[in-house]
């Protein structure tokens, strides 16, 4: 009987321990939690690093910065060349917001030189309204209103 008890208890215990779930929410700021592979924190860190370097770069200070001169930056899409699905548009957005908040730059979504276009497509979409009969054309964006970009 004892044998029977042991023989049936062990597998059941094993079965239960095998199925135990330990899923829980972890804060993205919790540095004690390390995950295998890339995580949200790695991406944020990469975006922050890029941002800090751009803001700190002396070459990106407009010569007439003291008179309110600002460089207008066009931001390329980040190509996700990994085996993980990462929303790189979120990273671009983070960098864009950081650049604007620094007060040193303006950014544009009017032009982008990569295939998929800027992560914010509202400028492109608003251009399409130029031909829309449903819009008051006096209030739509005109093609000749964009600032010419110089490539540094």
């Amino acid at each position: 009987m004892k044998k029977l008890l042991i023989a049936t208890t062990i597998p059941v215990l094993l079965a239960m321990s095998g199925c135990q779930s330990t899923t829980k929410y972890v804060s993205t700021h919790d540095e004690d939690t390390v995950v295998m592979g890339l995580s949200q924190r790695d991406f944020e860190a990469a975006a922050n690093q890029a941002l800090d370097e751009i803001i700190a770069s002396p070459l990106l200070v407009h010569p007439e910065a003291d008179k309110g001169g600002r460089y207008i930056l066009s931001i390329y899409n980040i190509i996700n060349d990994t085996t993980q699905r990462i929303d790189t548009d979120q990273l671009v957005k983070k960098i864009r917001v950081g650049l604007l908040n620094s007060g040193k730059f303006l950014t544009t979504t009017a032009v982008s030189f990569t295939g998929a276009g800027p992560e914010d497509s509202s400028t492109a979409k608003s251009r399409e309204l130029q031909d829309s009969s449903l819009m008051n054309q006096n209030t739509t964006k005109k093609m000749d209103r964009f600032t010419r970009l110089t490539l540094a």
Partner: peptide, 22 residues
Amino acid sequence: ILCMMGAMALSGCASTGNGSSP
């Protein structure tokens, strides 16, 4: 039979389903 019971319990975890009985 005992061995089979054990196997049944163990193989329960290998199920690809979720939330079902072992």
